[in-house]
């Protein structure tokens, strides 16, 4: 099912959670809404579900207006952040709930309900837990129950709110793979909310990066990582080295020193030069656009980072640079920084 979100705005008192958001989700795709907390991603998901209503704008399911229908009538499978399992029902009854509350012509006979629930429980690989209560399950098992329960109503769209947020790192990784696999088996249109970029990049067909109630960029995981559309996306996804600069007369300067880098069409004014750590080389300080003194070197696991102090007329600026494997760097030495691939963005006015 295709979902169209058109010009949706939502305010909570004075806080604007969503600001004229437009988004199309294609049938059968798995889309991740990625952003920091407060970016509006959960609000957008809840509006699609019908748990929240927008102040203005439209939501359409396959071209039909969805806002005239309540969550009950939208036939969406919603997986809640903390699972929201019915605590007084066992796993079987939790999954059967959506089938049991049906009335009239849709009502299934008991045998059909049993068959469907058992089928779902084996799909999510927890058929042996059918008699247990939610309090007796681990986080990963609860997550699977929540998913089976949402799938029981044969939803037109599956909405997942931070589905792995409450799990530890190892289980999270495992479940992520499994969910991706499940999506390939059962290609129902799915929207996933997460603040974990790794999760979004690994799972989703397309990633929607959100910040401050707006959509910053929509693209494939590779696109948003390699070609961030805004400084926000560059900062939020992957690691970023931020170098200071200023555009004057179509050229980039740092203080009074011409950098010899391409301003990439950014208008005159203060700018930020953003690069991935592995795209910035350490070189002889005489030949590079930036040079500075090494303040400290930190090692964590396979990566090493150096704090480099750049001096300019505007006072010292400390940037973090990656130290390649096999290279040693002593605090106090002068080093040059050469960004090979970089993006230039205007410095936002504060």
């Amino acid at each position: 099912m295709t979902i169209d979100v058109v010009g949706v705005t939502k305010r909570f008192k004075t806080f604007t959670a969503l600001d004229h958001v437009n988004l199309t989700i294609h049938s059968g795709e798995l889309v991740a809404l990625l952003g920091p907390s407060g970016s509006g991603k959960t609000t957008l998901l809840r509006i699609i579900a019908g748990l929240e209503w927008p102040d203005t704008g439209e939501v359409r399911f396959d071209g039909e207006d969805a806002l005239t229908r309540s969550v009950r009538e939208r036939n969406v499978g919603f997986v809640f952040q903390h699972y929201a399992l019915f605590r007084h029902m066992n796993v079987f009854e939790n999954v059967a709930f959506g089938l049991r509350v049906r009335r009239g012509a849709d009502k299934l006979p008991e045998a059909a309900i049993r068959e469907k629930v058992n089928e779902l429980l084996s799909l999510v690989q927890i058929d042996w837990l059918a008699e247990r209560y939610p309090a007796q399950l681990s986080g990963g098992q609860r997550q699977r129950v929540a998913l089976a329960r949402a799938l029981a109503i044969s939803p037109r769209v599956l909405l997942l709110d931070e589905p792995f947020g409450a799990l530890d790192a190892k289980v999270r990784k495992e479940l992520r793979r499994w969910l991706r696999h499940l999506h390939e088996e059962l290609p129902v249109t799915s929207v996933l909310v997460t603040h974990d970029q790794e999760e979004a990049l690994e799972l989703a067909d397309r990633v929607v990066v959100m910040g401050h109630g707006r959509i910053e960029q929509v693209g494939s995981p590779a696109e948003v990582y390699d070609n961030p559309a805004t400084a926000f996306v560059h900062d939020f996804i992957g690691e970023t080295i931020a170098l200071p600069g200023e555009v004057r007369g179509g050229a980039l300067y740092f203080g009074s020193h011409a950098l010899g880098l391409d301003p990439q069409g950014v208008a005159d004014g203060p700018a930020r030069i953003l690069a991935r750590p592995h795209d910035v080389d350490l070189a002889d300080p005489g030949t590079t656009p930036f040079a500075g003194k090494v303040l400290a070197v930190r090692t964590f696991g396979p990566t090493r980072r150096a704090d480099v102090e750049l001096t300019s007329t505007g006072g010292p600026v400390v940037v973090e640079a990656a130290v390649p494997h096999g290279q040693t760097l002593e605090p106090g030495t002068k080093v040059g920084l050469l960004p090979r691939r970089y993006k230039v963005f205007p410095q936002p006015a504060r």
Partner: peptide, 19 residues
């Protein structure tokens, strides 16, 4: 959230309350 889950699964208000 349990009530929201029940309604999203198609339960009416009354049935959500009693179930």
């Amino acid at each position: 959230s349990e009530e929201e889950a029940a309604i999203s699964l198609g339960a009416s208000g009354l049935s959500t309350f009693f179930r």
